[in-house]
Design a protein around this nucleic acid. Structure first.
Lengths: 334, 334
DNA sequence: TTGAAAGCGCTAACAG
DNA sequence: CTGTTAGCGCTTTCAA
């Protein structure tokens, strides 16, 4: 627990000088530099980041607010963020929220208290409120995957186009009766995927709000969950026996659908085809392997951190947005 | 960015008093308390954790060093840690290491600099070195899942017994020729699982070092990876056509094995049975669903954080160790 | 080129 | 009960 004072004393210099050689700021003679480094080595000195942060106003820590680390697509993004952050000497604080706004808001307060230099919001439940809170607190924020194309600085993938590509592929395979397993209403990127599906199915005039009313449509909310996928598929098939293809709004619900069909002895893709969204790791392991829309999650994480770092070192330039392309990965299920 | 001074001024009291009401320490008249809280509210004051940490020597942050967030069993542990930590007002810093000792060591230095109050090591590559470095730095540490039963404070599961249970089950199913997909040599919990297998197969006298020499044994290193599982299974079956059951040291390699067998048209479990280890989420989704040894990962994470918190509030008592039981989850693959 | 001094925002004695 | 004071360990002027 040596302090800068100890270094100064054993090196026989002032603390200002020690600080100067440590941070390579200002002129220091080669000789003193050596003396200081020797003292640092021999005392195994590591600067106290807290004390440093108090004066520099920089903690070299960034906050990552995400809904759930256990949700398969999240760790990949987190890993991307961490890898890039570390390259810049930053450390990552992780906070789960279970997609609840109150938890999200509390997370910001905690991070503000921990004085992180910036925050990355991964798929927040309420983007506007979260971003404005960060702005109130005066802390740089960047949003990942809210799917929101507003002025807010964000990284996302083209969910709308991804959904359209998925339906296009299904149609190309000869399917005309295509059901959809929707995500939670109000979740931006879930809405975009739904919109893509609707538009591709010629339901351009239908608003998202109307969807839940129109029971005759082959659309069921699976909430992006495995169990939801099972249940939704069952409901869908009962109401719409004509369906030959199910487009799931994400892979988890696709997996649920797959399990239901398998248990019912329905052959995939022969009787019912399935197409997912995300390309989480599991997608390539199930049988039949899942055809899906790949989201470059790791790259998205890296990009988010990259842009934040960039903004931190040059706060004057606005943070650019960035939209990643999605790619169709054709495997066996459709 | 109001400071304690601003609060003191607008509330018309001294900063000491403000600090007292904020921390509920010492006597403050109800009236002043109100005045202070009003000022806090109206200025939207949030205490600066950094300044506080500088004097209290407590950052309310803990470091979690893990090998890879993308490894399926890791996020669950991390989530458990975070949930428990948050209950105590702690925030979690996550550092990946890719299982490389140098990265691990660097992680400690970073965390030391960030002045975390404690560190949780999840399956470190080199437990001794890591723990001793933490001790040198004088920072409380607890180890998760190193499988090491030494004096070091740790949480782990009974890998040895788990492996024995797995083999026992396989035998009960009538299997006598049971192959093993081993993990990396030297990884403690991998070694324990291997030891369990060896002992159950009557190879009690065989040392772990000898295993790699004895090519005639039905043991191949799959390195705990999906691809490793595929390759190892292929090798295993070529060398040992008599095998009717494969015990994979972890689920990822079991999944690899499963895929290989499926592609070869080998029926599971009819021709070859498979039993895994970990019970990662995917295990219950593949076909056939994987019989495996369940590790209570979330609970392990919670326990780790719990013990650390406990130690932080009562540093005098030694940190107890804790070994979780593993349970056999019988599904379809064996 | 370098030492000394002034804080950063807060807690924790210490007098009143 | 409450205001004042002295640091926590570091960076950053400011003289020298």
């Amino acid at each position: 627990m040596a302090t800068i004072k100890d270094i100064a004393r054993t090196a026989g210099v002032g603390i200002g000088t020690v600080s100067r050689v440590l941070n390579e700021t200002g002129y220091v003679s080669e000789e003193t530099r050596q003396k200081v480094w020797n003292a640092v080595k021999s005392l195994q000195y590591v600067p106290n980041g807290i004390a440093r942060a108090l004066v520099t106003k920089r903690t070299m820590a960034l906050g990552v607010v995400l809904h759930d680390l256990m949700n398969p697509y999240v760790p990949t993004i987190a890993r991307g963020i961490e890898d890039e952050a570390r390259r810049h000497g930053y450390t990552m604080m992780v906070l789960d929220t279970d997609w609840q706004l109150e938890h999200e808001l509390r997370a910001i307060t905690i991070l503000r208290q921990q004085a992180v230099d910036g925050i990355i919001l991964v798929s927040p439940a309420n983007t506007e409120e979260m971003v404005s809170k960060c702005q109130d607190e005066n802390i740089p924020v960047i949003v990942v995957d809210s799917g929101d194309a507003s002025a807010i600085s964000h990284i996302t993938a083209d969910h709308y186009k991804g959904a359209r590509d998925a339906v296009a592929w299904a149609k190309k395979q000869g399917h005309t009766h295509i059901g959809f397993l929707a995500g939670p209403a109000g979740l931006r990127f879930a809405d975009l995927r739904l919109r893509g599906y609707l538009d591709s199915m010629g339901l351009t005039d239908l608003s998202l709000e109307e969807v839940d009313q129109r029971k005759e449509l082959p659309i069921v909310r699976a909430e992006f969950l495995f169990e939801g996928g099972r249940a939704a598929t069952e409901a869908l098939l009962h109401a719409h026996p004509e369906i030959t293809c199910i487009f799931a709004g994400n892979d988890m619900s696709a997996l649920g659908a797959l399990q239901y069909l398998e248990q019912q002895g329905i052959a995939v893709p022969e009787q019912i085809a399935i197409i997912g969204f995300d390309d989480i790791f599991i997608a390539s392991l199930v049988h039949p392997r899942l055809t899906t829309i790949r989201q470059p999650m790791y790259e998205i994480g890296v990009a988010a951190a990259e842009l934040l770092m960039q903004h931190l070192s040059a706060p004057e330039c606005p943070i650019p947005q960035r939209v990643f392309d999605l790619t169709l990965v054709v495997r066996e299920s459709c």
